[in-house]
Every structure is written in C-alpha cells, then in structure tokens.
Design a protein around this nucleic acid. Structure first.
Lengths: 249, 249
DNA sequence: TGTTTTTGAATATTATTGATTGATATCTGA
DNA sequence: TCAGATATCAATCAATAATATTCAAAAACA
C-alpha cells in the first residue's frame, strides 16, 4: 500500500467519522501501528487533521480539504442550496466581495457573468474566469492550508474597493458570541469586507448553529444570515433583530 | 513498445487511478522496472505527473498548466536550464519578485524554501506553497488568458514591497527596441518590479533574440539577461554595456 | 559497418516499514 | 484524590522495499 493511498484512506475516515482510533486505521489499511503513527504525524504537519491521544480528529472549521473533495453529500447539498440562494441576491453589474472557502465557491457557477468580483480566495479564480466575471484578487500572503489571502497586504488591497454586497463563510453562529471563524487574520478580512459593503451576507449551514470558533468578526445584526429551510426552527434561539433569508421549503 | 506508447499508457493509468505503482506499470507495458522508472523521471520533468515512493500520482494543482500545450521539448529543456540558472542566483532568505509566465514557473522547484516570494502569477501559488516558500500575491485584476494579476490594484499592491531580486519573462530582446512584451499592463508590472529591486534579471530563451513585441518595459542595460550557452554567438549584436549570464556549456 | 540511443540486469544507496523498548498519558476503583 | 493498571506514545534499530547508478547487450539509425 502506497503512502498516498494510506493518507487518502485516513483522510476519508477522519472526514466521515470525525475521529478515528489508530487501531481502526491499522486494520483498514493493513499497515502497522508505527506506520499509521508516522502518517498521522505527517498529516498533522500538513494541517490536514489533528492528532489526539489514541487516534486523530478532523480540524473543526478549517477546510483542510480542497473545495472539490467534499465532506458528506448532505453537507454539500446544503451548501449548494445556500450558495444558490446567495447568488440569486446578486444583481447584474454588481460589484461584490467573495470570501475564501468552499461554501462561497459553490456560488460562483450561479453568478451573473456581468458582476465584478473581488475575492481573497485563490482557489476561486479559475471558476470565476471560466464564468466570465471580472475577477480581482486582493493581494497578501497566501495561507497554505486554505489558500486564502491574508495579512496587511490583503487588508490594504481590499481597502481600495467598495462593494455592493459581500458574501462570507462562517464557522460559528452563536446567540452570545456572534459570528466566529478559526483564523484571526481571516476574521480581519471578513470584518473589513463588511465595513466596505452596502449589504453583508453570511452563508451558514445548520451545522454551524450554536457553534463558537476562535475569532469573532461580526455581531449578529451586522449581516443577513442565509441558511436552509431546515434550520427554521432554530431561529427562535436568536435575537429578533437579526435578518434571515432561508431557502425554499 | 515505443516510448510514446508507454508514456500514453502511464498517463492514462495515472489519470484513471490517481496513483499507480511501478509494478503495475511494469506488467501493463511489459517493460522492465528500469524503463518505467526512466519514463516516470521524464514525465515528472515534463510536469505531467508526480513521482512518489513506489509509483506515481497525478498532479493535484493542475488545471492551470494544461492549456499551455507545451511547445517543443527542446524549448522546455532550454527554459528549464535557464530557470535553474536563475534559481541558483537566489540566496537563502532573499525576498524576490517572480513574474507570471511559464519560464519563471520552472524556477520554483529550484528555489530555497527560505525565500519570500512576491508574484503576480496566480498559477505559481500551488507550486510555491508546496515548496514551502512564504508566498505573497500582488492584488489586482486577473487576466483570463495568462492568469497574471494586472492593473492599478496590482501596481499599488506591489509598490508596498521592495525586493532583493526580480525575475522577469520577456517576449522580445532587440538591440534597438530593448525588452518588450505583448501586454501593456503586464509591461507596467515588469517596469515597476525593476524599479523596486536591487537586481533585475530577465530570462530569455534564444528564440526571443532580435524579436520585438508591443510594449517596451526596460532598456537593455537595466537588467541582467539570463540565457543558454547556445546563444553565445548572438551576443555580439548587442551593446557591450549589457550584463549577461549564460548556462554551462 | 560504425555510431548513437534505448533497454534490462546488477549493484550500491537510500527510504520505508514493523517490532521492540522505555517513557508518558489516561483510565479505574477505591 | 490517589495509586496501580492499562493504553498510548516517541525513539531506536534491523529487515525490507524502493531508488539511483552503472554497465553491457540489444536495437535503431545513418
């Protein structure tokens, strides 16, 4: 069994189960415990997972996987629905900001080609250009794990523009803690995007409800939250001042 | 079995399976292990696949390089030699600027991982991050054909930095018309890069000698020209004030 | 025919693996 | 809370597998 094959198996199991123990991986791959251990060390170094006593767990929030290798298909289905709703809010000739991240990525193929898009997601460029959109990247440091552009240069670069709308990914949506995301620098980008936009939208799939991540980037009433109809019942736990938009049925 | 046949088989299997082991390829082609090994080395050099311990896997950051139907392999060979020469001029911990373009791309895998790289070539990011370099993109509009970042935003973004060295692609090198390139906006980027760098280098394969393209971005003596030894005889047609560096023999 | 290129086998070098060890962390039941 | 039992971990080492290198035979070419 090749190293890459083992890594693929490990990542798949981690993605599916959330956490796995070394013994299970040993059986699944037919390799020895030492080898699995070494694999986990390697994968942790690549920021693909987190090692825990007895096994490994997936990184929460962080999309260590590329936009293509998606998690569960249910999750993907939800993301696509929300993304489609988000794209439907974009008007012809709008100038919009798109956050990095896989949920936002799903919006691209529903966008009108006439929009001008500013983004800090390097992975979005191919799809945006294919779609025919005018595509502008913020500058800045490329973050290896998510390929998001961040840092001083990215903020300065974004600050040159103003947007009709911005669309942001979110890792936690909590009544007390507001909108949060694991990376402080990405949080700064989101924060600035909101300030520079006439309207701000957060794409939140139901798994992010009641979750809290590290860095807060917005209060609950600063953005319009887009989510699935399935989450409708959860809405009562949040302040009435919030703005929501949910998908059909 | 012809070399091209084997290469076709290998590429097909890699494309279908994602990863293949050498033994399978050996059986499939009926060639010896050594031959397969040589094929894989060759295909890796052509950036068609990635060699891994025990076999080969397909490139993941691909998409970007495919439309670039590689010209003659002689041309590629020359580019690689020049790129290697260029990379050898980079010191540990340098901060450098890399132009967009395929010749410059070939430099990346020879760079010391300790360098900080600023670039306007979106296609370079994957390779730079794989290499472990600190990677900074200039912002700006993404040009669909070359995936270069250009325009006001790109210039403003680059202007935040200063470089030890910059490395530029060139389309024409002419005794009277200096260094030229087809796109005016890319020319502006090159021009500014030279101004912001302590040392500027142009990578010029021999087919560009005596050529003239649309937009001039530098005089002949503003940069050090890197080229192959094969071009040595052409050098006398150019002013003596120019600085050259040529590959070995 | 002589020359160059390609190939496959042999060998030396390097990387990966799995077992073993002692150390460290977690769990259990008082 | 503690101590003992158990499980997991990091480090090492020998065995194995994969790789690079070399060389001579075979094939392709002129």
């Amino acid at each position: 069994m090749l190293e890459t094959e083992r890594h693929a198996i490990i990542m798949r199991m981690v993605a599916e189960l959330g956490t796995v123990r070394i013994q299970d991986l040993r059986e699944e791959t037919g390799s020895s415990e030492s080898t699995i251990r070494r694999d986990l060390i390697e994968l942790e170094k690549q920021r693909k997972l987190k090692r825990i006593h007895g096994g490994a767990s997936k990184l929460q929030g962080k999309l260590s996987e590329s936009p293509m290798t998606e998690k569960s298909s249910k999750n993907l289905q939800e993301k696509q629905e929300i993304a489609q709703l988000a794209a439907s809010l974009v008007d012809e000739n709008d100038t919009i900001y798109l956050d990095a991240g896989s949920t936002i990525y799903e919006m691209i193929r529903h966008l009108p080609p006439s929009v001008t898009v500013v983004t800090n997601g390097i992975s979005h460029t191919d799809a945006l250009l294919d779609r025919g959109c005018k595509t502008i990247l913020t500058g800045g440091s490329a973050k290896p794990s998510t390929k998001a552009l961040i840092g001083r240069g990215a903020l300065a670069s974004m600050n040159q523009y103003r947007f009709d709308k911005c669309f942001l990914g979110v890792n936690g949506l909590h009544p007390d803690y507001g909108l949060t995301t694991p990376d402080e620098e990405e949080a700064s980008m989101k924060e600035l995007a909101i300030r520079l936009s006439r309207d701000a939208f957060a794409l939140v799939d139901p798994s992010k409800f009641q979750e809290v991540s590290f860095a807060r980037f917005a209060e609950l009433d600063e953005v319009t939250v887009l989510t699935t109809a399935a989450a409708r019942e959860s809405l009562e736990h949040y302040p009435h001042s919030m703005k929501w938009k949910v998908t059909d049925q």
